[in-house]
Structure formats: structure tokens, C-alpha cells
Amino acid sequence: MKVMSQPLKKRVNIRLLSTISHPDVEKEMFDIQTTGELILKGAQPYLVYEEVQDEKNSRTTVKLGGKTALIMRSGGVKMRLPFTSGELQTGSYDTIYGVIMITTNTKHLHFEDGHFQVEYELLINDEVAGTYTLELIYTEAN
């Protein structure tokens, strides 16, 4: 009988910095402080936290990596954003009208312990809908 090892969980303080640039619109910047969990499944780290957008709660899970990463949201917002450095990846965004297929064009992806950064273009129907920079800085909570 094989015993599955339990994932290692740590409470963390998270600072989420994001910049959104849409064509012909002034840049939007967000600086959010929250708490969440850093979960290690084997050697794979995940960051899990709750977000509130437009009065809807969403659970966000970020699969952290240096060459590939994945952001998944569930709850008020449902989406799947995959990232691979220098490659186009297909993701999805659930709307009240159905699921929209979206594409990420990852320009920069960097991960080291406590710091994750991704810069990407979001494409809908091969049109650039916006350029996004997301930075997650996390430290162990007391």
C-alpha cells in the first residue's frame, strides 16, 4: 500500500501588483494586499488566495514556475490563463453568455522563491485586447 504524502501548506502574506494597458485607454494599476496559502505538492508550488472583483468573490490558484505558469480563477470569475515563455497558449474565460477562448502571448515570465512576475498580451479572436503585467510577492505569515 502506497501512502500519498500530504501537500505542505504555509500561510502567506501576498502583495499583488498588476498593470493593465488596453488600446486607446489610460493604464490601470492595482496594488492589493491579501493573505493566502503557499502549497507545495511535491516540488510544485501553488499560491492560493481569495480575490474580490466587482463585488464577486473568486478563488485564485497560481501554479508557479519559471518557464510555464497557470492562473485559475473559480467562483465569481471563472477563467484559466496558461503561460509559456515566448509561446502562445489557449485559455478560457467564462461569461454569462458562454465560454470565450482567449490566447496569452507571454513576453516575460520569472519565478524565484517569494516572487513571481508575468507580462503578457491577452488576445481575443487574434486581436490584442490588452497587455498585462502581474507581480506576486509573498512572505510567510506569522
Rank of each mutant, 00 (worst) to 15 (best):
F30L: 11
H115M: 01
T106K: 00
L122N: 07
I32Q: 14
T139K: 14
N125D: 15
T95R: 02
D126Y: 08
I20H: 06
G75H: 06
L17C: 06
A69C: 02
G98L: 01
G42R: 08
F116H: 10
T104A: 07
K78L: 11
T34R: 01
G36A: 06
T68N: 13
V12C: 12
P7F: 03
Y120K: 12
I124Y: 06
L109S: 12
D24I: 04
Y97N: 10
A69K: 02
L81W: 04
M1A: 06
E37F: 07
M4E: 14
K2A: 00
E140Y: 12
D94F: 04
T60E: 04
E28H: 06
N125Q: 15
K63R: 15
Q89L: 14
Y97W: 12
R11S: 15
Y46P: 02
E127A: 13
N13W: 05
Y46Q: 09
M29Q: 01
T103D: 13
E26D: 03
E28Y: 05
V52N: 11
I71N: 04
M1H: 05
Q33W: 14
I102V: 12
K63M: 15
H108A: 07
E37A: 09
K10F: 08
Q6R: 12
N125E: 13
P82M: 01
R73G: 08
E26P: 01
I20C: 07
S21Y: 02
L47T: 09
L47N: 03
N57R: 13
V12D: 08
V48Y: 03
L81S: 01
Y93E: 11
D31G: 07
M29P: 03
R15D: 06
E87T: 06
P23R: 09
E51M: 12
L136Q: 00
I32E: 14
M101P: 08
E127L: 11
